[in-house]
Nucleic acid binder design. Structure first.
Ligand SMILES: [Zn+2]
Ligand SMILES: [Zn+2]
Ligand SMILES: [Zn+2]
Ligand SMILES: [Zn+2]
Lengths: 341, 341, 341, 341
DNA sequence: CCACATGTGTCTAGACATGTGA
DNA sequence: TCACATGTCTAGACACATGTGG
């Protein structure tokens, strides 16, 4: 499951890229089995670190821009509730913030409306969201850094977030005080969806002691970049990694009731454009468990729900909401199909 | 029914081995009747235990290789549905896994494409298939170990699998934490077939309590070996020993639909006829999981289902069926109530 | 904490026993430290096993009498809800049955109304309560017998129940098919109470596989005996040892609603006398957690409760119920005292 | 402030040791200024590590003896309240335990009744006091180990306790799983006192995360040794290193009231002045646990409390206090409602 | 083959433990 | 010293796994 194979199975893509080496890591393919994980990572690191970064990553004490920006290709990011992962997480639409435990894998969907004929990358950077700490780099606490599972590749150790995509490259040198970030190639969506889904996991909690996050709020910045490190889109996600997501969310909301949602964000916000909240509350898909007796009833219910969603989709035709309904609609359709077999 | 007699009726064997003592246990022949089962077993054990093992069996905490390998003589193994044994078993081609009850004898056919001019042995080892437990040795639970039928020879007691071939030797010392395995001489096929058939039986279930298998999945590794313990072929078989093979297989398949059938293993599929999915009991209540977006839709769905069941109840007023619908109706009503709070 | 010391500190006892060796285990005192646990147990066993048993314990296939009988000294037994033990247990007054998990220590209070001038012993025996199995002896399942904690003394291993009193002697030889029982010296109550409290624990579940209890219902018979094994009182307690005491109790009660409580017992019941249920439901003490603000209010509440219980005690002066209220009253009084310090 | 200078100002010592080289580290004196702290420490380490240890320190998984023992020279240890150090600490005579914050220097006085004519050393070892963890070695948490102040000599880093005596040697190799201990030469008392005072400091808290102490209770073992590592006296001190010594001590004492103060240890009580129990915040809601028998009594109690609070609320109508009572009132009302259902 | 018996794992609420900062 | 922030533990509810007996 290398980057190349992902890429080449995209037969429906109608633009041909002959001036671009589609297989970034082609030299790794041949001897992947003879290299240790760390050596592979090292190699990829050497390739990707040459992507120029736009200055915000090199000098310490700079503040990373967290202004959201769809960019020329319509970059969009959705965080989804994980299906069956160990710990669930919660989303506060009031605060536009996600709460989850560490080591909880959570999927993020990326998409662009138009795909340019060159390589795209997604860079994931964690920063402190309070202006007071925004210029400090976010590192893992020593405790987790030196006591993580031994299969963590060396480059990953100082990072507070990891991506399960095997082509992830962990960038930045903590010993030089550099800001850390991950970089993944922006794959092509599977047939039938516009989204590319990647799984992430946090490896430290917000409460990890200094020089870890030390109870400072963070946000994750997703930037769409080309091979030159040019920023082509940017999305931000407020996150709190803690042991009791539900409790802490409720507390946060109680404390902030009355204040404007995502308050801190606004003051750095220049676009004024419509912010697409990350999976807003009532549009977030939930599961309704209905006790059913008899196949005929089951089928009737499914049909009814299908109709219901059809209406929603049509009514929201020109609307981002439609996307959510379409996904649900597809699931229902699949269930109907399965039932009729 | 000694090893020799099996051997001598092999009239179609077209190579004669005169420089090989085909009768490994010849000294046992003469006084077999004056020896107890345990004494015979002890004797055979002393002979066969001298077959060097390749290290994977001696140290605890090693992981037994389960990579399939036909080897120089084209080793193949087939598991067959038994003719009339007490309990039947089922095979899932989707998962490449066999489901059977304990004490259910099942035949396994072994064959090689070319037979070398020296003794061959088949070693049967049970291991945990989940990597998490692969390095632990599989032992029988104390319950079955100390309560098996009294005619079980002593060496067999800690083994979870037995072979009905009387020349089977049970190897490995549980008290030393050694990995257990059986070893049988690879007999010559009967006239008219390429296969040598051996009957096996499991003596513990996957669900036997710790320190038994304790619900951990297992696989059986068949290795073809020469008298020096050199591995000349290897086959693996996923097995689940349980009381309700059919039920559990169906559940497994439902859970794993979509996932690849045991990627790292080659198929051992021979028996896999067309499977007829079992029709669900139509009055049995099942749970339909509906993805829902938006509270208004949820409410509408619930109301719809409530109406649906109302109809059923009225229609079945004088009918036992009504009872079922009433229960479901009550649940829905409760859900509506809860949702409106 | 030997038997003797318990005995001798009873200065308020007004009868002097000079013809009785008060220190049953006196010879053990001197060299207790040089003997292993098993040797001590062996020694005590040799002493106590000479207490003649009344025949019901020796021959297999006899049915142990479970008829309750207060006896000449007014033998009474109460099972109490444990304070802070790991797992709680529940009592069904409907079925007069206790439900608890294994390894859950539970206290039992023993008392007599008059204490005779000779040694008393309490024998604890577990039997199957269904007549169908009553003649079979209750043994531990091999699984737990051979996998219990290594500090279990040898004699204890085949027993399904253990007593935490260090002077407990485990009687009966499983290999001879003998019925197993425990025997403890009946100590003298601490000053200020009539009860002698002993802690027990079950070491197998009702559901342990054959030859364990194998889902057969059991009851525990407490018999008061003298040094000759003469029965001087008998109490029975229905118990179910399972993983989900609450669930199973509720199920049991649902199944048996309409049927007479402790149905099976009755048919062996000849006394017809008033059965003293083991801590009957509404008399069972529960804990009410009251949020309190201000010491004056706390004190007032406590005083009120004290008054309330005073009334109850007086009203039930000639009544067994008074005992329960007195205990609660004493606790409240202690709380008041503590608060005033 | 080397070991020698300490030694030479001991003018009141009445025994002269001319056959003993009193200056263990004499070779270090000359070039002390040209060596870095780590080099000096390394040197001392090489000298002192040759003191044979009595085996309890080498193998992991041994339990260090904590039995107190005055030994042939009347070894005594006193822990004293520090004069003006940053944070104070408290001592619970009830539990014979010291509570202090980390980085809080605390003096310990050592003395012997008779001083032998050879070198004496004091070894300080920290162990887990609960038997469950006693065989595990106590190490510093990675967080503090890798983030301590940079002037900590290398050998000190994994130790949870440090001694301000510059001649302290930090023994044990964490990477080998060895038990860590400090060793200081037992100096001679200053004029006018029998005691030798040494200052210690904890460098981790009991609550430091795994693989640190991870909330496990510890004790410090002081052993008096000769140059051969022979134990000549032993004292143990229960310690809890935490942020709120006073609070935690009070809690501990409340929880353990009634239980004997650390039975197996002799008292080290010297400082235990009169403790003034802290009056509880009278408006803070507490929970009163009332043993209740019978629903009618429960209801009556609840109603009484409700009335009580009603009065308080009305009386404090214009008062902030009312708020507190209202909350309690609501809880009681809910309890009444629940009880009546 | 089904209904049920019954253990196990997981999730969650709540109580508690314990650090932090005012 | 206190209120609070926040990790951890534990008991209960529940879904599920899986044996048993009809
Ligand atoms: Zn961390
Ligand atoms: Zn078994
Ligand atoms: Zn058992
Ligand atoms: Zn620490």
């Amino acid at each position: 499951m290398s980057f190349q194979s992902d890429l080449l199975c995209q037969e429906d893509q109608n633009y041909l890229l002959d001036n671009v080496d589609l297989n970034l890591f082609s030299d790794l393919q041949s001897n992947e089995e003879t290299l240790s994980m760390d050596e592979i990572q090292e190699h990829k690191f050497n390739i990707l670190k040459n992507i120029p970064t736009n200055g915000e990553y090199n000098g310490a004490k700079t503040i990373l821009c967290n202004e959201e920006y769809n960019g020329p290709f319509g970059f969009e990011v959705d965080v989804l509730r994980p299906n069956g992962s160990k710990n669930s997480w919660v989303y506060s639409s009031l605060l536009n913030k996600v709460y989850m435990d560490m080591k909880c894998p959570f999927p993020v969907d990326f998409r662009v409306t138009t795909r340019p004929p060159f390589h795209l990358f997604i860079r994931i950077t964690t920063t402190y969201s309070s202006p007071q700490f925004a210029q400090e780099c976010v590192y893992r606490c020593p405790n987790h850094e030196f006591n993580g599972s031994p299969n963590e590749p060396l480059h990953m150790k100082p990072h507070v977030i990891k991506c399960n995509n095997p082509d992830t490259v962990y960038l930045g040198d903590k010993t030089q005080g550099e800001r850390l970030s991950l970089c993944i190639p922006f794959a092509y969506p599977q047939t039938g969806t516009d989204n590319v889904r990647e799984m992430f996991e946090f490896l430290c909690k917000n409460s990890c002691p200094s020089p870890g996050m030390n109870r400072r709020a963070i946000e994750v910045i997703f930037t769409l970049e080309d091979a030159n490190g040019e920023t082509l889109g940017r999305k931000a996600l407020n996150v709190r990694v803690c042991s009791c997501p539900k409790r802490d969310k409720e507390k946060d909301e109680k404390d902030n009731s009355g204040k404007p949602p995502q308050g801190k964000k606004r003051k750095m916000d220049k676009t004024g454009g419509k912010r697409v909240p990350v999976a807003p509350n009532d549009l977030q898909e939930t599961i309704l468990k209905i006790p059913v007796i008899g196949k005929h009833n089951k089928d009737q219910i499914l049909k009814y729900v299908q109709d219901l969603y059809s209406g929603e989709i049509l009514r929201h035709e020109n609307d981002a909401e439609a996307e959510h309904y379409k996904r649900a609609f597809n699931k229902i359709t699949a269930m109907i199909k399965e039932s009729s077999e």
